[in-house]
Design a protein around this nucleic acid. Structure first.
Length: 257
DNA sequence: ATGGCCCATTTAATGGGA
């Protein structure tokens, strides 16, 4: 089985690239984030032509997540139990069972700045996610993949000295991720196709990508029974190149059957 | 080579992204 996660930064703006990438990479399951489209606008028919069923949870202008699968898709859940809002619940998590594994696509709140209410919301959201995943882990194999908006270690940003007073690297954010791992999820490390750092995000501005000034903020967390099946995982930086890319690259994971 | 913001929306200017 091959699965992937990708923050596409608008599924409509990215549709030609998404379809090409699906055809070329041939993942069985894909977790998408920042689809930025209401469910009735999701290009379900277009991805169906490539054999994918869709579980989309969107709200329009912002956020939006989806799971695509060509190996079956059922038991779809939008959001999760106890999800906090800002102030209303946002479309930041959707899950479905595909090929014997529950896949959850997550788009963690950004946090903006550490003194912003959005930062407190981010920590609340991650704490609530942890609690919601406990019963999911008991129910069977689980993958929680997406844009976590946290760089787990200093090496996961291009220059940690530039992140003083910034979100994504603070101890409480990192502790929130550690608390999620502690319930029985493993960080599936992805290899970089070039260089030493498997960054998944590079700002559009100032040539950050070609200088490889990036961040590792997209992550794949898997239950132990999934993690032990991993044969390869890589960041597809090719998808960040060229005209009209997302600012995030996909992570592709291969499992033994 | 990978190339110097981009997205959606209230279609101009703004909020959000990280």
């Amino acid at each position: 089985m091959r699965f992937a996660t990708w923050n596409v930064n608008s599924v409509k703006a990215r549709l030609p690239r998404l379809l090409d990438w699906l055809a070329g990479t041939a993942p069985d399951v894909v977790c998408l984030q920042e689809t930025k489209v209401a469910d009735d606008g999701f290009p379900s028919a277009e991805v169906a032509e490539l054999g994918y069923e869709t579980a989309a949870y969107g709200q329009g202008r912002w956020n939006g997540v989806a799971v695509l699968s060509r190996i079956g898709l059922d038991d779809v859940r939008r959001g999760f139990t106890g999800v906090p809002g800002y102030p209303e619940p946002e479309a930041r998590a959707v899950s479905a069972r595909c090929g014997g594994i529950r896949f959850m696509s997550v788009y963690v709140p950004n946090g903006r700045t550490p003194d912003d209410p959005h930062y407190a919301y981010k920590l609340q959201w991650l704490a609530a996610l942890r609690e919601a995943l406990i019963p999911d882990l008991k129910a069977g194999p689980l993958v929680v993949a997406g844009d976590y908006n946290v760089a787990p270690a200093d090496a996961d940003v291009w220059d940690i000295t530039l992140f003083a007073n910034s979100t994504h690297v603070t101890p409480p954010e990192r502790a929130a991720l550690a608390a999620i791992r502690e319930i029985g999820l493993t960080d599936v490390p992805a290899r970089a196709l070039k260089g030493d750092h498997p960054f998944t995000y590079w700002d559009y501005r100032a040539g950050m990508f070609h200088q490889n000034k990036g961040m590792r903020i997209d992550l794949v967390y898997g239950s132990a029974d999934v993690a032990e099946r991993v044969t390869d995982a890589y960041v597809d930086r090719e998808a960040r190149k060229g005209k009209g890319p997302s600012d995030h690259a996909p992570i592709v994971v291969d499992l033994t059957d």
